[in-house]
């Protein structure tokens, strides 16, 4: 019991005294997961929209691929990225294995199918005639896309939350491609694993508290955006 209470006490001390190492791990985590989610949004949301809103040959196949991607085991993503970026691998010349860049690539592989899949499910709930209504009002391709994203706003934000949740909590893939190098590729999850292994429970608890707080903060912001109804978005176009 003492292990836990002492651990929590020390954890708070570490957090509030601004322990340099913990602070750096936190910043790297935010950077890697943040960039991953943003790139995954850029890839996943349009992919979900396009697959969901258009009828084309092989649509069912594409949807199956996306759905499979949603359940992709992170270690599989990690292995795949490792193989590609390994010194003798096809992209080995880039020399980015065991760097944050490699971690970002692995996380994109995990998050973008999640974001695409949830977006896809969301836009399929939209009345397909709304697309024609938008076109009929004179919207070009991008305006139609934008209008429909707004229409699927609630579930699309849920997609981003799911994607973020997927990457920030991920440990297997980032461990594999990042190598958990202290001061370079050590993030909250891999550091926690390391600290528990070493018996440094106080630091592990501090790391997990920060991880939970980050997850909560990001989801809180997204929820607030999601629940804010009636944003006056037509007025945006007026000066």
């Amino acid at each position: 019991m003492e292990l836990i209470t002492e651990g929590i006490k020390k954890a708070f001390i570490l957090i509030f005294t601004g322990d340099r190492e913990i602070f750096e791990i936190m910043l790297l985590t935010i950077r890697v997961s943040g960039i991953s989610v943003i790139i995954s949004m850029i890839l996943g949301i349009p992919a979900g929209l396009i697959a969901g809103l258009n009828n084309f040959k092989g649509k069912k196949f594409v949807i199956s691929i996306i759905n499979t991607g949603m359940g992709l085991p992170p270690v599989a993503a990690g292995l795949f990225v490792s193989l590609i970026l390994w010194r003798s691998g096809p992209l080995g010349f880039l020399n980015i294995i065991y760097t944050p860049a490699a971690m970002i690539i692995a996380q994109i592989l995990i998050a973008s199918p999640i974001i695409a899949g949830v977006t896809l499910a969301a836009v399929q709930q939209i009345n397909p005639k709304l697309k024609y209504q938008a076109m009929s009002l004179g919207a070009n391709r991008w305006q139609v896309l934008w209008i429909l994203i707004r229409e699927a706003k609630l579930p699309t934000l849920a997609a981003i939350m799911a994607g973020f949740g997927g990457v920030i909590s991920e440990v297997g893939a980032v461990m594999m491609v990042g190598g958990n190098i202290k001061g370079q590729t050590r993030v909250l999850t891999t550091a926690t694993v390391q600290m528990v292994r070493m018996g440094n429970f106080d630091i592990a608890i501090a790391l997990v508290i920060i991880l939970l707080f980050l997850t909560f903060a990001v989801n809180l912001v997204l929820t607030l955006i999601q629940q804010k109804e009636n944003i006056t978005w037509a007025q945006r176009f007026w000066r």
């Binding site: 009929s136 009002l137 919207a139 209008i147 229409e151 009636n230 944003i231 978005w233 176009f237």
Partner: peptide
Amino acid sequence: RKKISAVFQEPLLFRTSVYNNILLGLSIR
């Protein structure tokens, strides 16, 4: 399409206020 406008059997309004819906076509154009 910008010279034509259409109303269909369903109202097909968007998830925003009535005011914004009325002005949507103008903002698109």
